[in-house]
Structures are given as structure tokens and as C-alpha cells.
């Protein structure tokens, strides 16, 4: 009886997670926003870090999130990516469909004992496919000459480039970038700017969280702090 109850509880949890993932289906109206965030609130460690955040994101747009340390930039991106359940509010739109947002956090999910190419191939296989080939992605981030090098001998900046190359492996509509330029040199930042511009030109959209200056002159700013936020 209890075993069945346990099973049912896990099943219910699983169904909840699955239905949340599958509920949002992409709609193809061209002028509709890719993402509509409304009244988003989130607490971490007993403290409310986000409250009443709302904005919409259309094709080709870039939102630059800034704010002091602890203002909830990372939490906001993780909520949009579906990695964190918000305490209140909604995130809706075609970009909410599984595989349509791609989140690059501050950690580099790079395995030191795999080569650059093996890391990229693994990431490509984890997704649903439909992106660019791993070799092309590495080339775009300036890693073409290091495809067969074990990732453990890469520098921090090169590992960051490798993480960012993951963006090109999937056809996701919306990129969510958390401090993408950390450890990047000027060439790395320029390549980042180039792939972001290319993604936007194809109708994709980008949300970047940063506290440093980034070369995105036409970005819409979203400043997080205390109280309600909209843009």
C-alpha cells in the first residue's frame, strides 16, 4: 500500500514536471512575442530576490539585464529557462516549448577528459538536433585548431568559448546568457557579438545578464533592483 503510494507520489511529481514541459506549444504568429514574462517572483534561501518582473521579448530583440550583486539576474534567467520554478508569475510564449530556450550559465559544463570535439558532440546529442555541426560551432568561436585537444589543457577563456559554441548546436529561438563575457579576451567578445548578431538576424532573440559593459548598443536595458521591474 505504502509502496504504491510512494510510486503514485513520484508519478504525480513526474507528470507535473512533464506536463509543465509539454504544455507550452509553439504558435507561429509572426508578430507575437517569443516570450512574455509577467509578474515573476522568486525567493532564494528565504529571501525574495525577484518580485513582479515583467517584459516581452520579440524576434530579433536583445535585452540586457543589469543590476547589483544579488539582485536576481541569475535567478531570472534560470526561471525563464525552466531550471527554477518561480514562486509567482508566468513565463509564456513559443520560446517556452522544450528546446526553444538555451541557457548558458556561469559554469562551463566542459568535461576536462573529453576533447573539444567530444564535448561539442555530447552537447549536440543531448539536444533534439537541428543545429549546426560541431566543427562549424567551434570555428565560429575560434576553436577550429583545437578540436582534438583535451579540454583540460584549455585556458579559462577558451573553455568559455567552448561553452558559448554550444549555442550554435541547437536551433533554439531564445538564448539566455549569464555573464557570457567572463574570462573572454577582446577577440572572444567580438566573436560572441558576431554570433549574437547573426542569431538576431535570423529572427532569434537574446537575453544577457551582465554587470560589465558589453558591445550591444541596440540592447533594451532591464535594470533589476528592489521593487517592480518592467521594460
Amino acid at each position: 500500500m505504502t509502496a504504491a503510494f510512494t510510486a503514485a507520489a513520484f508519478f504525480a511529481l513526474w507528470c507535473r514536471a512533464m506536463s509543465a514541459a509539454l504544455a507550452a506549444t509553439p504558435s507561429s504568429a509572426p508578430d507575437e512575442p517569443l516570450l512574455a514574462v509577467h509578474g515573476l517572483a522568486c525567493a532564494r534561501g528565504g529571501r525574495r530576490v525577484l518580485s513582479d518582473v515583467g517584459f516581452t521579448l520579440g524576434p530579433g530583440e536583445l535585452i540586457l539585464i543589469t543590476g547589483p550583486n544579488g539582485s536576481g539576474k541569475t535567478s531570472l534567467l534560470r526561471c525563464i529557462a525552466g531550471l527554477l520554478a518561480p514562486d509567482a508569475g508566468t513565463v509564456a510564449g513559443p520560446a517556452r516549448a522544450r528546446g526553444q530556450t538555451l541557457h548558458v550559465g556561469h559554469a562551463d559544463p566542459v568535461k576536462p577528459h573529453l576533447t573539444v570535439l567530444e564535448n561539442l558532440r555530447f552537447w549536440a546529442a543531448l539536444g533534439a538536433g537541428g543545429g549546426r555541426p560541431p566543427e562549424e560551432a567551434a570555428d565560429a568561436m575560434g576553436l577550429a585548431a583545437r578540436l582534438d585537444v583535451p579540454a583540460r589543457i584549455l585556458s579559462a577563456g577558451q573553455r568559455r568559448r567552448l561553452s558559448l559554441a554550444r549555442l550554435l548546436l541547437s536551433p533554439a529561438l531564445v538564448w539566455l546568457l549569464d555573464e557570457p563575457a567572463n574570462a573572454l579576451d577582446t577577440d572572444g567578445v567580438a566573436r560572441l557579438a558576431a554570433i549574437v548578431a547573426d542569431h538576431r538576424a535570423r529572427g532569434g532573440a537574446v537575453i544577457v545578464a551582465t554587470h560589465g559593459p558589453l558591445p550591444f548598443p541596440d540592447a533594451r536595458p532591464l535594470v533589476l533592483g528592489h521593487g517592480a521591474v518592467a521594460c
Binding site: 513526474w14 522544450r98 559554469a107
Partner: peptide
């Protein structure tokens, strides 16, 4: 542990296959 530490766990959650 290592997938949790380096953020690979996020990729697993976002992957189209169920986490189970």
C-alpha cells in the same frame, strides 16, 4: 557530483529526454 558542479545537470534537465 561533477555534472552538478560544472552545470551539466542543467543541460540534462533541458534535454528532450526525461530526466529519469
Amino acid at each position: 557530483a561533477s555534472d552538478h558542479a560544472d552545470g551539466t545537470l542543467d543541460l540534462l534537465v533541458e534535454s528532450p529526454a526525461p530526466l529519469a
